[in-house]
């Protein structure tokens, strides 16, 4: 299997087979909270892709050249969450200054991302993940994995928002409206995504 084949494998895993939301249960708060409208779901998805990619890059560098190099792995949780919080703040300031229109679209969602467990989850899993042959992720692999996981998150967020927009007009029992039906919907979607597990690449 060449490098491209490996990348294809990684993409399929991150987007479909081991989707962060539906099979790893990461990032559920925004998944359930921001999926009522299609455009806000899109904005959130873009912001998550961006932050996840950046966070994967920075945490990989910090982990390799600071924590592992000086034997400080026990500080991983603190170091990673601080990096992500600082990164989100920084990204917010840069976008606000240089791309006001983008800031308008993403602005509200950026601070929320600090506490999106999918971002910290990707960063931690990148340090533990290995290829099939047992080699650890390189810098490029980690960044790509962050990017692809973001895509997987956005995909299910958009699917969910599309369904929930139509659900507004459905005649539901009063008690099931809102969060309960949202969760059951997520369950049915997760069931559908289980079908991808049969794929052998």
């Amino acid at each position: 299997m060449g490098y491209l084949g490996k990348l294809f494998f990684m993409a399929m895993t991150a987007v479909f087979i081991n989707n962060y939301v539906l099979s790893r249960f990461l990032g559920l708060c925004p998944y359930l909270g921001v999926s009522k409208k299609l455009d806000s779901a899109f904005g959130m998805g873009m912001a998550v892709i961006f932050v996840m990619t950046m966070a994967s890059a920075f945490t990989y560098l910090i982990n390799t050249y600071l924590l592992v190099a000086y034997n400080l792995q026990y500080l991983q949780t603190i170091a990673f969450i601080l990096t992500i919080a600082a990164l989100v703040q920084f990204v917010e300031m840069v976008i606000q200054k240089n791309a006001p229109s983008l800031y308008k679209a993403l602005g509200v969602y950026l601070p929320l991302i600090t506490t999106n467990c999918a971002v910290l989850g990707v960063a931690i899993l990148n340090t533990k993940a290995t290829w099939n042959d047992g080699t650890a992720y390189t810098f490029i692999d980690a960044v790509l994995n962050g990017f692809l996981s973001g895509i997987g998150f956005t995909l299910v967020l958009l699917l969910m928002a599309g369904i929930r927009e139509r659900l507004e007009y459905a005649d539901l029992p009063v008690n099931m409206k809102g969060m309960p039906i949202g969760l059951i919907l997520a369950g049915v979607m997760a069931l559908a995504f289980y079908g991808f597990m049969g794929f052998k690449i």
Binding site: F25, G187, Y194
Partner: peptide, 20 residues
């Protein structure tokens, strides 16, 4: 299915419906 991912969502969905 109850201990896999879909079961988690559906169980919690029904429990929340009951709470409501």
């Amino acid at each position: 299915v109850a201990i896999l991912a879909p079961g988690a969502f559906i169980t919690l969905g029904f429990l929340m419906g009951m709470m409501q």
